[in-house]
Every structure is written in C-alpha cells, then in structure tokens.
C-alpha cells in the first residue's frame, strides 16, 4: 500500500457489487479502484445506469458491497453491522440527495438538527447549532418553515445544512442540482464549493458538465468500471 492510500479519506480497492433480481444477477460495479484525498471536490459522471448512485451508496454505507476493500478515514468498512454503519454515517458522512429528502412534518430547523438528535446532543444545543448552520446557508429567517413552504433551492440548502451539522469528513451528494433550475443549481454548487474550501471532502454525482467542471476531478464510470480520471 502506498502512503497516499493511507492518507486518503476514501480508498476503494476492487469494489464489486451485483444486484440479484430473481434468478438474474446484474453486476453493477465490476472492480472499482479509487482514492479520494482529504479536501477534494470530486465529481462522478457516467451515463444513466452506469452505477453512479450505487457507488455513492456504497461510499455512504447505505448499501453493502460483495467484494473488495473500502477504507474510510483509515478504518476498514468491510462487513459492517447495521449498527456500526449507522455510527460511521453519523460520525463521518453527510448526505445530499436529488429529491432533498427532508422530513415533511418537521420544520427546516428540526430537519437540520436531526443528525445531532441521533448523536444524543441535548435539544437546546442542537437547535442553536442548527440555527447557526441555517444562517450559514442563508436561511435563518426560514427556520420555522416546513419543507413544502420552501423553494427547491431553499430545500437543498436546508439539506446541505443538515449534512454539515454533524461536522462530517465527507459529504456525498447524489445529483444535488438534478431537480433545480440553472440559476439555483449555480447557487447550490457555489455553496458546496464554499464548504469544500473549509476542508470538507465532497463527492458529487452529476450529469451536468457545468457542475462537473467546477470540481477538482471527475471520475467517469462506464460499464461498472472507472473509465479515466483527470484532475
């Protein structure tokens, strides 16, 4: 193993994953090798069905993989229990989704505070912290609003604040601008870049070249393998 391998926030070696649908087996990831360094802003691109979301879910410990090694922050993620996975997610990872995935009956503030609830942070502290992150994404005045009272861009900024609140080392974003118009997309991307400047590693799955081009590096997936990287 190289020194770089150990310094990486994320290091994947020969990751394989297949989906079982009935008697059929569909191999989606056919041996992924890659490392992502601390502080990088990386885009994952590829045609629809190429396995981008699958890869991101593996990185996010939301899904398991069949073979290979995944080292996150120097710790091996092989064969984790659900409980351990939940702990690592809470400790290391933040998520941003295309469909925002805010809880509809909770206010913006409560949504942002939720990760801290699962870390056992007391309510007052949680809410103060959530307020600070809402301010950071420019939504302090919207704290008490429910998600359906917010625009798409505002929802995504709430989701980003929520991803940030537990101080993760990596933020995983699956097409964060996929549901937004171009102006709002640029705002969200600007926000992600700003966060990245503060030292948080970000992995963005995207279809859009304008988005990908703003990243340090693009990983292209094709047919379950990494096609090439530039950076």
């Amino acid at each position: 193993m190289s020194a770089g391998y150990l310094a990486a926030v994320i290091a994947l070696k020969s990751i394989r994953k297949a989906y079982q649908t009935g008697s059929q087996s569909l191999t989606v990831l056919k041996g992924i090798d890659c490392t992502i360094e601390k502080g990088e802003l990386v885009a994952i691109m590829g045609s629809s069905g190429s396995g981008k979301s699958t890869l991101l879910n593996v990185l996010g410990l939301l899904d398991d993989f069949d073979a290979g090694t995944y080292v996150l922050n120097g710790q091996n993620m092989d064969g984790l229990s659900e409980k351990a996975a939940a702990r690592y997610r809470s400790e290391f990872l933040g998520f941003v989704f295309q469909s925002f995935n805010l809880i509809s009956y909770k206010s913006a503030l409560e949504n942002v505070a939720l990760p801290l609830y699962y870390q056992g942070v007391p309510r007052k502290e949680r809410q103060a912290s959530a307020m600070a992150f809402l301010s950071k994404v420019g939504l302090a005045d919207w704290a008490e609003h429910l998600p359906n009272q917010l625009s798409g861009g505002q929802k995504q900024r709430v989701a980003i604040a929520r991803a940030l609140i537990a101080n993760p080392s990596v933020i995983l974003a699956d097409e964060p601008t996929g549901a937004l118009d171009s102006v709002t997309s640029d705002e969200v991307m600007a926000l992600l870049k700003e966060i990245n400047k503060e030292g948080i590693t970000i992995v963005v799955v995207t279809h859009e070249n304008e988005i990908a081009n703003q990243c340090d590096r693009i990983i292209r997936l094709k047919d379950g393998r990494i096609e090439g990287s530039n950076g």
Partner: peptide
C-alpha cells in the same frame, strides 16, 4: 419508509 430511510442515513441505528 422514505422518512425512516432518511433517519437511518442521518445516523439512526436499527435499535433506535
């Protein structure tokens, strides 16, 4: 289902 998935992603263990 979706909400519970979000909670899991945000750190809720199965026990919780």
């Amino acid at each position: 289902t979706n909400e519970l998935g979000i909670r899991r992603a945000l750190g809720a263990t199965p026990g919780v």
